[in-house]
Design a protein around this nucleic acid. Structure first.
Lengths: 329, 329
DNA sequence: ATACGATATGAAACCGTTATCACATATTAT
DNA sequence: ATAATATGTGATAACGGTTTCATATCGTAT
């Protein structure tokens, strides 16, 4: 059933029906007639037809590197909450960390498939920047700072700095570092900078043999822990860029009878639910992932209402969660 | 730029351009002309306009009760993998366990917004059934058995039965149960039935005071553990319907100096990543969540190609993962 | 030589909406 | 009383594609 048939069934004009769904001038009389007919027929207008003429899709594209990650799903939950309330739906693209899929999704959204885009990429190239500038709809980046674009991000540097400082203040003298890909400016570079800042402040020279770059997984953390603990110099604290990495490190410690926190303290960033359940509860920095999603979505709504042409970068703060893995003294 | 302008730019007819994108008869000559013009202009056809006439959206609606759950995100990852490869995109609706949103999303998808629907609801009412039957596009249910519809589900009963049996075989005499909402036929009812079947086989009468219904959260598991351990009768094993519940139980045990597995064995279903990292690694039944997503998506693809009118129910099997929480004897 | 199916083509109708337009009436300001 | 504005109305063009139709050409089987 299309609008013409429905209008006939309701005994009103096509224009009246369109006005009913688009808040135009409409007499109470016709409004009631339409509502009654709606009840009878179950008619609903076609989104695609509407989009052809009005360009409005009521769809927001969300591009993310993976789905089964606690931090990402929390961000997405925040996004979905805010946009859902405003009648938008999410067109989700899981790029599976595949650079090409990331690019092609941006291409796809460049035209009139969505009203806006939220991007949760972790590594940005010139091609990303170029596509983002060409984008004809507003775009928001969540989890990274990218100059010249609208972003919601975390204070990764501060988070890493304070977690490292916490361990140094508790008496650690030989700090180790297991980080993430430095091309990832947030979880990779900034968290490393925070670690190094804390060391510099304490007058400790970072030891290259005690610094490793891991992937975002427990397995990778386990492996890198193996490399660190087989060095001559033994660390007495390890800063891990993510909770998953820390979980892998702790697994290694348990298997090799390294006591936490007595032999080595462990601190991380992310505060996943798992942290407090580990065999030694993990000290970690809580980042407000869901809030990031909420704020990113709000920012997008603003942009979609009327593009401000001024780009904002919103940085969210953090909370240090101290648990047993750093409970020395 | 629209198809008419583009056709002019490429020096071919509008029909030729349409045929290029829809695999109609087209001479090599024109094909090359179009490809060259595509390169120059960056033209891409409008999905909505295409949909108005052809009814094809290349969109699949996915309705899920929450995003930040490991099992759900694994299912979704499987779905996204299969459908992405076939050029479909996912229209994701997070209902946040809200019955009304579940219903209204089904309503929304009833018309021509998507080519198919995958539903991950946990509780089904008559209204669900009625809406699903009225659905004009194929629908697949993942994680539940619903007679008369296409489903991919797990052998929840078998999983619960075997985990319970494992603990009874290890000498447990006083089994306790912390389950989920029995209106959830899979995680709630079937896992309870599996537990009871194992008890019946061992000639043990289930003790009502040792059976609790929890929510799908660690906190809830913690609370229910408190109720069970303050009964006169002390259990020597607890079957938990999910890993999260088990994690809460273990937290309670740690705080109350109840030794696992010496005082009480703990077994669960779900095998989340967290399980092996708990302070006592958790025995759990591995369910093939991602496979469920993959198979559900394949089933949907089949239905979308040409509805078979025969409804299939595919049940996936499981693997018992034994870890220390049941390592008695 | 003829008939036939496969390939190829462009004009025009069509899909289901919204936007525009021309016009009518009611309400308020001057 | 009149002008100016707000409200209400239906016909129709426009949106950007796909499908249908009528027609043409080619190779090949009869």
């Amino acid at each position: 059933m299309n609008i013409t048939e429905f209008a006939k069934a309701a005994g009103v004009s096509v224009s009246a029906v369109s006005r009913y769904f688009n808040d135009g001038y409409l007499s109470e009389d016709k409004r009631l007639k339409i509502e009654a007919a709606l009840e009878r027929t179950g008619y609903m207008p076609s989104y695609s037809a509407r989009t052809v003429r009005s360009k409005v899709t009521k769809l927001v594209g969300v591009i993310l590197p993976k789905l089964s990650s606690e931090s990402i799903s929390r961000v997405t939950e925040g996004i979905s909450e805010v946009l859902g309330a405003e009648g938008f739906e999410l067109l989700l693209v899981n790029t599976a960390n595949d650079y090409n899929r990331e690019i092609s999704s941006l291409e796809l959204f460049r035209q009139n498939r969505v009203d806006g885009v939220i991007l949760l990429a972790s590594v940005f190239t010139d091609l990303h920047r170029s596509l983002l500038s060409k984008m004809r709809v507003p775009a928001i980046i969540v989890g990274q700072k990218l100059m010249g674009f609208n972003c919601v991000c975390h204070n990764d540097l501060g988070a890493a700095y304070n977690m490292t400082k916490l361990m140094l203040d508790k008496g650690a003298k030989v700090p180790a570092f297991i980080g993430a890909n430095p091309e990832d400016n947030a979880a990779g570079r900034d968290r490393r900078l925070g670690f190094e800042k804390a060391l510099a402040e304490a007058g400790i020279e970072p030891d290259k043999s005690l610094c490793e770059i891991a992937k975002f997984s427990m397995e990778s953390g386990y492996e890198k822990a193996g490399r660190i603990f087989t060095q001559k110099k033994k660390p007495d604290c390890i800063f891990c860029a993510t909770d998953n990495i820390a979980a892998g490190v702790m697994l290694y410690c348990r298997e090799n009878n390294i006591r936490i926190p007595d032999d080595v303290m462990i601190g991380a960033v992310g505060d996943s639910r798992m942290g407090r359940l580990l065999y030694v509860p993990l000290s970690s920095v809580h980042l407000h992932y869901k809030t990031a999603g909420i704020e990113g979505a709000k920012m997008l709504l603003n942009e979609m209402k009327g593009s401000s042409s001024v780009h904002r970068i919103m940085q969210l703060e953090y909370d240090i969660i101290e648990r047993e893995s750093t409970a020395r003294l």
